Simulated scan of single mutants.
Amino acid sequence: MSQILIQSVLLDDERVDILIQENIFQKIAKEKTLSVSDPNSVIIDGSHFAIVPAFYNTHTHAAMTFCRGLSDDVPLKIWLEKYIWPREASLTPEDVYIASRYAILEMIRSGTVFFADMYWFRTETALAARELGIRASIGVTFADLLKKDFEENCQFVEENLADYSGRVQLAIAPHAIYTNSAETLKRCAEISERFHLPYHIHVAETEHEERGSVTPTQGLSPVEFLDSLGVLSERTVAAHLVHVSEKDLQILAKRKATCAHNPCSNMKLSSGTFQMKRFLEHGIRVALGTDGAASNNNLDMREEM
Results as ranks from 00 to 15, higher is better:
Glu124Val: 03
Glu124Asp: 11
Lys27Thr: 01
Ala29Leu: 03
Leu252Val: 14
Asn57Tyr: 02
Arg122Val: 02
Arg101Tyr: 07
Thr112Pro: 00
Thr58Ser: 13
Ala136Leu: 06
Ala176Asn: 08
Ile177Ala: 13
Glu14Asn: 13
Phe66Ile: 13
Pro198Glu: 05
Ser35Ile: 03
Leu185Tyr: 02
Lys186Met: 14
Glu281Tyr: 09
Thr290His: 02
His202Ser: 10
Pro263Lys: 03
Leu241Lys: 01
Asp163Gly: 01
Phe142Gly: 05
Thr236Glu: 04
Leu76Ile: 12
Leu19Cys: 02
Ile20Trp: 00
Ala129Met: 05
Gln218Ser: 14
Asp38Arg: 04
Asn23His: 08
Val244Met: 04
Ala50Val: 12
Ile6Arg: 06
Ala260His: 01
Ala89Cys: 08
Leu249Val: 09
Asp38Asn: 15
Ser90Cys: 10
Gln7Lys: 15
Tyr97Gln: 08
Asp291Met: 01
Ala99Tyr: 10
Ala129Gln: 02
Pro198Lys: 08
Ala129Thr: 10
Leu226Tyr: 06
Lys277Asn: 12
Ala62Val: 04
Pro75Val: 09
Asn160Phe: 06
Asn160Val: 10
Glu183Pro: 03
Glu22Asp: 15
Tyr102Lys: 14
Thr123Pro: 04
Tyr56Lys: 07
Pro263Gln: 07
Ser110Gln: 12
Leu280Asp: 01
Leu127Glu: 12
Val36Asn: 04
Asn40Cys: 06
Asn160Ser: 04
Leu161Pro: 09
Ile20His: 06
Gln26Met: 05
His208Glu: 15
Leu34Gln: 03
Tyr83Thr: 09
Glu31Val: 00
Gly133Thr: 09
Ile98Gly: 03
Asp300Ile: 01
Glu22Cys: 08
Asp300Ala: 06
Arg302Trp: 09
Ala89Leu: 12
Ser8Gly: 10
Asn153Val: 02
Glu304Cys: 10
Glu210Met: 12
Leu5Gln: 11
Thr112Lys: 00
Ser233Gly: 14
Ser47Leu: 09
Lys247Thr: 12
Glu183Thr: 11
Ile108Thr: 04
Leu127His: 11
Ile28Arg: 06
Lys77Glu: 15
Ser41Phe: 08
Lys32Gly: 01
Arg278Thr: 12
Ala204Tyr: 03
Phe279Pro: 03
Tyr83Lys: 03
Gln275Lys: 15
Asp248Lys: 11
Ala143Tyr: 13
Leu105Pro: 05
Val157Ala: 07
Phe279Trp: 14
Lys268Gly: 01
His243Cys: 08
Val244Cys: 12
Gln3Glu: 15
Trp79Met: 07
Met1Gly: 12
Ile284Gln: 05
Leu220Cys: 12
Glu94Asn: 15
Asp149Val: 04
Ile177Gly: 04
Ala129Asp: 02
Pro75Gly: 06
Glu205His: 03
Glu131Arg: 09
Asp38His: 08
